[in-house]
Write a protein that binds this DNA or RNA. Structure first.
Lengths: 229, 229
DNA sequence: CTGAACTGTCACGAAGTTGTCATATTACTT
DNA sequence: AAGTAATATGACAACTTCGTGACAGTTCAG
């Protein structure tokens, strides 16, 4: 779950600051744009995960920007939440028509804003894989978050679960500690490479408890490999 | 099947009366609301089987109301037929997008209106029949809003009921707090994720009182799972 | 109006998880 | 066989996540 980037398009600096504060408070990264042109540049470069768009912008209107974004294949899937003045029904309708995902009327509480942001991001979030991975007597189901070896249930911590899932879908190949950190932990985390060793050990321990040995193999000087023999 | 209740949301009293007359003539029960606010109150209390909604309302628009209803888990399955002025294509498109099930243009014949009402009710019928869900000794009947475990009756609050219903129809799979909020509370309900924990606890409490344990399981770091094992 | 039922939020402690280190063990080289 | 580099392991403190009881705001029937 990498931190989502949110672009704030708002011409009033004071409000923009407020938004940025709230957004960052909740652990998101905030980008800022004061008008539609600046916004478009930012969007092309940074491809934010969500756009918070004030409907009343100087020059090119917010609705215009929304239309343009929806027309471009690269940006048409970026969700938009629009900020509108209270009770401006026409704007709401036009906005939703132009492809906004949700709207919020000023003034709004930080809590409501955050709730809507999370709701929209959640709705866009990719579905978790439904597919059951099965290999060498081990069965792993991401949807139910269960692992079994020869029918017996296995208990795994979150990290060991992800690690095993990765290995089961990348059999036979050797991965360095750095690669495993990228793939299983995420490429943004700062963690000692040796930490991988520890989790490999924990995974081995649980697997051996179920009579499965030598599945995770050490390749001295290179990394680890998941293999059936 | 009990007589269906139909809510008429129409600001023009004369037209509302006409609608009520026609509806009641056909053996349905008619509720009335003159604006969106009154409508929302009625809906929450009476849970009508169908809503006949004029698109042009004073204050908060019909589209607004429709969206709100669709966002709330309790009301999202209530069918909506919208009344539009002749040939207002934009409204039709928006209306269907917002979740209306059908539309009818003014002026309309009573016969046409009734035909559409019956059609929509019929279409929803299979869902309304709400077969009893039964699993692992628990029986849940959406129609009567009752739950029993091994024959013994169980008392559940509305939210716990919906939560259990969802779990019973989605066994084994793990759901995050966010997903449960979407599915059980509704998309646009803004509630802290931890609130889910509290309702899970309340549900567990009641179930354990009936000798059913470990049905709702915690999957640390991921969410919750309903499972018989 | 009053009391009961229900809901959402919070604070706190309990329980589980994680990253890191020190030390032991192993594998390889010479 | 000894020396050295790489890996395994056990311990542990910091950190997250979860369970739980309390509580205040609402709704609603009587």
């Amino acid at each position: 779950m990498t931190t989502a980037t949110i672009l704030l398009v708002e011409d009033e600096p004071a409000i923009q600051e407020l938004l940025a504060f709230n957004v960052e408070q909740c652990g998101f990264r905030a980008l800022k744009a004061l008008d539609a042109e600046a916004a478009q540049l930012q969007i092309k470069q940074a491809l934010p995960d969500l756009i918070l768009l004030d409907w009343m912008l100087p020059g090119s209107s917010g609705i215009e920007l929304a239309r343009r974004l929806r027309a471009d294949a690269r940006t048409k899937d970026i969700p938009i939440i629009m900020l509108t003045a209270r009770g401006d029904e026409r704007d709401k309708i036009l906005g939703l028509e132009a492809g906004a995902d949700d709207y919020i009327t000023k003034p709004f509480s930080p809590r409501e804003l955050m709730a809507r942001i999370r709701a929209v991001l959640r709705r866009r979030a990719p579905q978790m894989s439904e597919e059951i991975v099965s290999i060498g007597g081990i069965e792993l189901s991401p949807a139910t978050h269960r692992v079994s070896a020869n029918g017996e249930n296995i208990e795994l911590g979150p990290t060991e679960f992800r690690l095993l899932h990765f290995f089961m879908t990348h059999v036979e190949r050797v991965y360095s500690r750095a690669q495993l950190l990228d793939q299983v932990w995420g490429d943004h985390v700062f963690v000692e490479e040796r930490t991988v060793d520890v989790h490999i050990r924990r995974l081995r321990q649980v697997l051996e408890l179920s009579g499965l040995e030598r599945l995770v193999q050490t390749v001295r000087g290179s990394g680890y490999r998941f293999s059936l023999q």
